[in-house]
Simulated scan of single mutants.
Amino acid sequence: MERMKSRQYSPAGPLMDVMLIAGKINEVLLPHWVCIDDIPNLLQNFKVLHINDCGEVLETASEVTPSHVRLTEPDFSLLAALVSSIFRVKVSCDMLIYYQPDATFLKLRLYLIPHDSGVKEAVNKSESSRGFEEIKMHRPNKFLKMHQGFSLNATVDTVKVQPKEITLRYDSQDPNCYEVLMKNPDRQFSLELRKSSSPKDDPVWICEFWEGDYPKSGPSKEATSVRTAAHAKEAGAAGPGGPAEASSTTGSANMEQKKMLKESLMNISAENFNAFLDALWGRKEKPRIFRVKVEGKSPLEVADVMITTFGEQRALEVAEEILRYINCNQDADELAKKAGAAGAAGAAGAAGAAGGVRPAGTSRTSRTSRTSRCTQTGRTWSRGLRWTPR
């Protein structure tokens, strides 16, 4: 392969060791991972590498399809598809993900590689020898440009990623990887891959991770049981009206906040809901919600995404801000009023359970109602669309 670089050719597919036991094969189709849309004169710029006892030979392909290179009357041995290296080609890629089991923290290793089964096998073998286990997730859905830098970012601040950037290249021996570290892997988070040259563009790959994706990582069951027993003991020592009852009150308040957000999004018109989505993914403040997460979703699904990203209380605040931004001021006032009442009730319940009394006049101040009002219309949800009026 090194000699091919001097002849200005780069790997376009896996190196395959093909052996013919008996008979004759008229043609063979060799897989490749290159996007051919931007490559002119395909037969001139694609070659087949043939390695035999005499050395390396470049053969002319008979046909190049979006997924294979056709070679007629082949001599079998080591074969691979090559593409001219004068082009910065786009390739289909895999994202290989591994985690370290039996650790008190979460450690992930992510490899962005061309769709080469040989490289994947080598990485699997290397990571298995280190004691890491694979997490099977989806691959990037778009062709990515070779020799371009890509940055991996997390949606929560407690997740650390290193290095900041990796260049996509073909390395069959020792490909580079991202390392992701999370001290307390007990919450959902997402990883997003972006072109380093265009950090404001939509991610080229997004993946959500849940605790069940890495079941052998994080605090041991024994440690969790000890903490749970300690919390139960403290709650019991506090007696009736202690922390346990306060926690129950807080949980009820959180459920009420979720309900309020969903009802608020259900009550705006189709046109205003679309405007709400535009403003939501246009926010620059972190954590952000990107178009791919909410486009084509129903109000209930959008509310769930907001709560997962921001938390219950902050999700209500963001929703109110966006409603005012799109001039749905009366809906924003109603949401603020309900949120203030629920917050006051929850705080009063928690204070009462702890033996305290909430001072008068500390409930959230309602904002001045404006005359602008979103149009209320009946509507039904249709898959593939945002809202469809009845």
Rank of each mutant, 00 (worst) to 15 (best):
V292L: 09
V292K: 12
K293S: 13
K293A: 10
V294D: 08
V294Q: 07
E295H: 03
E295S: 08
E295L: 10
G296H: 06
S298V: 09
S298K: 08
S298C: 04
P299A: 01
E301K: 09
E301A: 14
E301V: 07
E301H: 06
V302T: 04
V302G: 01
V302K: 00
V302M: 01
A303T: 04
A303S: 10
D304S: 06
V305A: 06
V305L: 14
M306I: 01
M306W: 00
T308N: 13
T308W: 02
T309I: 05
T309G: 00
F310S: 06
F310V: 01
G311A: 03
G311T: 02
G311S: 03
E312N: 11
E312S: 07
R314I: 07
A315D: 06
A315S: 05
L316S: 00
L316F: 02
L316Q: 02
L316C: 00
E317Y: 07
E317G: 03
E317L: 03
E317S: 09
V318T: 15
V318I: 12
V318N: 02
V318L: 05
A319W: 10
A319K: 06
A319S: 15
E320K: 09
E321G: 07
E321M: 14
E321H: 09
I322P: 04
I322R: 15
I322A: 08
I322F: 14
L323I: 02
L323C: 10
L323V: 04
R324W: 06
R324T: 12
Y325W: 11
I326C: 03
I326R: 02
N327A: 12
N327C: 14
N327T: 15
N327G: 10
N327F: 10
C328Q: 00
C328N: 00
N329Q: 12
Q330K: 13
Q330E: 07
Q330R: 14
D331H: 12
D331G: 15
D331S: 06
D331L: 11
A332D: 09
A332P: 08
D333P: 08
E334L: 13
E334M: 11
E334G: 04
E334W: 05
L335S: 12
L335M: 15
A336I: 12
K337D: 13
K337N: 13
K337L: 13
K337I: 07
K338D: 10
K338E: 14
K338V: 02
K338M: 15
A339V: 11
A339W: 05
A339M: 06
G340Y: 09
G340N: 09
A341R: 13
A341N: 12
A341G: 08
A342F: 03
A342K: 09
A342M: 14
G343F: 12
G343S: 12
A344M: 11
A345P: 05
A345R: 14
A345F: 03
G346V: 01
G346D: 01
G349I: 12
G349L: 15
A350T: 04
A351S: 14
A351L: 13
A351H: 05
